[in-house]
Amino acid sequence: MMNNDDFEQLVYKKADKLKSHDRHMKMLRISVVPVAAAFVIMSLIGINSINLPSQMSSSENLIAEANRSNNANETYDKKSDSLQLDDEYQTPLNEVGELAEATSAYNAGEIDVEKSAENDVADHSQYVDSIASESVTFKANDTITITDQSAVDEICQSLSNPLSEYVGNASQFMCVIMINNTEYRIYHDKVKVLYNGSVSGEFDLSEDTKNVLQKYFPIVF
């Protein structure tokens, strides 16, 4: 048998172990209960996954914002991550590759995209049937949203703008690019920068910028 001091030490050691165990169990209960409750609630209301605002990509946020504020004739379909244009403009051409292809076919404010677009929209099979059945036409003032991040980065870099999303709007100017509240009016040889409708700057349009814009946008300089 142990002497009294050793026994006392053993008691306190066991007590510390018990306390530590209790703390651990308490933490487990704290962390498990809300998660379990959340899953129960989700299952009750039929939600299979949560997309928190912080987890949404910046492009999704900006596109949603752009859709809300600027475009009366388009809606952003979050589920399919694609842009839908109203009526005769309905098209899956929200992918950069498709826009680049459209650019090459662009002619004096009007382009035709034939059934070959089917190949480019394999990921959007729900639209394939409608695309196959009709030609798509771009006109002046059409609004195009580019969601491809690398394309957006390239365009923003060409405009020396650090923002990461833009909505282009073909108009009587060569092109108008909206990045949040900043408007870039693209002319043949210059870019005017407007902030909240007021001109805040102007710079020459370089050949590099032209190339980048031409790559992604139906512009002929």
Binding site: M1, L10, K13, K14, L18, D22
Partner: peptide
């Protein structure tokens, strides 16, 4: 078993301290 009894007795006191 005295050693086991002693160990369980220590557990009893520890229970009293921890909870």
């Amino acid at each position: 078993n005295v050693d086991t009894a002693e160990d369980i007795a220590a557990d009893c006191f520890a229970e009293l301290i921890a909870r």
